[in-house]
Design a protein around this nucleic acid. Structure first.
Lengths: 214, 214
DNA sequence: TATCTTGTTTATGTATACATGTCCCCACAA
DNA sequence: TTGTGGGGACATGTATACATAAACAAGATA
C-alpha cells in the first residue's frame, strides 16, 4: 500500500495496532513515523490525534503518544459495553428488519455452516451477521457508537484470534438462537441472547489472557 | 476567555454551537476563524477535525466545514440512542451503586424538589442525577459513549431550553420512579423507566420543532 | 442551444521552520 | 544523604508558505 494521505496513515497505524504488530506501550513518535511513511509530520500528527480519540493511543512520557495500554478491568468494561450496545441493536432489529433482511440474515448463517472449522472464513461470516443486525436496527447513531467500541476490542480479538476458533460451534448455535428470536420478533429474547453471546466470547478471551499472565 | 490553544478553540466552538449562537449550515472556515481567534490556521484546523468527529460539524460546499445540519430523523435516532444507553446505565447502576451513592442520589432528587419552577436550576440538578447514574454504573466505556452522544443532543436542548421547563413536574416524578427502581435493585424496571423518561422529553422537543416548521 | 474545456476562486492538505513545554540528569549546597 | 535548581535533549505545539482539489463561471465548439 502506498502511503500518501493522513487518512491512509491512520488506517495503516490502526491495522498495525489491531494486528498486534505494534504492542501496547510502544512509542508513536511523529518524526520517526513521518520518515517511515515518507511524509511530513503534519499528516502523521493528525493520524495520531485520531488514534487517541479512538482510544488506540494515549499520552505517555514526555507527552509522547504510545500505543494504549489496557488494564484487565478496562477490557472487561469494554466488552460489557459492546455487549450492551449489540444487545440493544439486536432488540431493535427484532422489530425493524424487513422480510428481505430477515431472509438475508438467515442466508448468512446458513453460509456460516459451510465453513467447517475454517475459523478465518467464519470470522468474516460472523462480521456480516453482526453488520446485518446493525443495519436492521435502523439507528445510525448507535451503529457508529458500536463501530467505535469495536475498533478498541479488535486489538485483542486479533491478538487472540483463536478465541473464535475455540468457540466456533458454540458461537454458531448462539447466532442461530439470536436469529430465531429475531424471526419471532421477540426483542427481549434477542437482547438477552446477544448479551450472553458477547459475554461468552469475552470469558474465553479473559481466560486466555490470564493464563498467559500466570 | 483568552484563546490560545487548539483545545480552547475547540471548547469555544462547541460552546457557540451548543448555545445556538452558531446555527446549522453556518460555514466554519479555517482562515476566518484563525483571524477571529488571533492564531494561525493550524490549531483551528485541529479543532475543526475534532468537531467533525464529535458530529458537530460536517463537510459542506467546497469541502469546507459547516455546523452540522440534522434532519428530523437524525434527531429521533440520536435521542433513541441516548435513551438506550442511559437505560443500560440505569440498569447497571441498580445493581452496582454503593449505599453511599444511593443516599447521594436521593439527596440530589430532594434538592430538586426545592427548585420550584426554576428551570435553570433544575437543569443542573437533572445533570447531577444523570451523572450519579453514570458513575454508579461502573463502566467508563459506556460513560464516554453517552457523553459523546449527549454532546450532540445539547445543541438542541439549548436551543429549545424550555422543554425542561414545560416538563418540570413530570420529569421530577419520572426521576423519582427511576430512583425507586434503583433502590429496589430492580434493573429491568430502571431500564424501562429511563427509556420512557428520555423518550418523553424527546417527544416534547420534536413537537416544538414541528410547530416551528409548520 | 447544449456541453465540454479551461481558468479562477476558495477552501483544505502538506511541508518546513520555529516556539514551547516537559522530563531527565547532574551539579551543588544544606 | 538528600533536596533543589538549572541546563539540555526530546517531543509536541504553532506559524507560515506552498501544493492540491473542487466548484463555479465564462467562452469556444459542436
Amino acid at each position: 500500500m502506498i502511503i500518501r494521505t493522513a487518512e491512509s496513515i491512520f488506517d495503516s497505524l490502526v491495522d498495525q495496532i489491531v494486528a498486534g504488530r505494534m504492542k501496547p506501550g510502544e512509542p508513536l513518535v511523529e518524526q520517526a513515523l513521518a520518515e517511515q511513511f515518507g511524509v511530513s509530520r503534519t499528516p502523521v500528527r493528525e493520524a495520531l490525534h485520531r488514534l487517541e480519540q479512538a482510544s488506540l493511543a494515549e499520552r505517555g512520557a514526555r507527552r509522547a503518544f504510545v500505543v494504549r495500554r489496557m488494564k484487565a478491568s478496562d477490557l472487561a468494561e469494554l466488552f460489557e459495553a459492546v455487549g450492551e450496545v449489540e444487545s440493544v441493536l439486536a432488540a431493535l432489529a427484532a422489530h425493524r428488519m424487513t422480510e428481505i433482511e430477515r431472509r438475508h440474515m438467515l442466508a448468512i448463517l446458513e453460509e456460516g455452516k459451510t465453513c467447517g472449522e475454517d475459523a478465518e472464513r467464519y470470522g468474516l461470516i460472523n462480521a456480516r451477521f453482526h453488520a446485518a443486525l446493525k443495519t436492521g436496527a435502523r439507528n445510525a447513531a448507535l451503529a457508529s457508537v458500536l463501530e467505535e467500541l469495536n475498533l478498541r476490542t479488535q486489538a485483542w480479538r486479533a491478538a487472540n484470534f483463536h478465541v473464535d476458533a475455540s468457540r466456533l460451534s458454540t458461537s454458531r448455535a448462539e447466532h442461530d438462537a439470536i436469529a430465531q428470536a429475531i424471526m419471532a420478533q421477540d426483542a427481549e429474547a434477542a437482547r438477552g441472547l446477544m448479551r450472553s453471546h458477547v459475554a461468552a466470547s469475552y470469558i474465553v478471551l479473559a481466560d486466555i489472557l490470564s493464563r498467559r499472565g500466570a
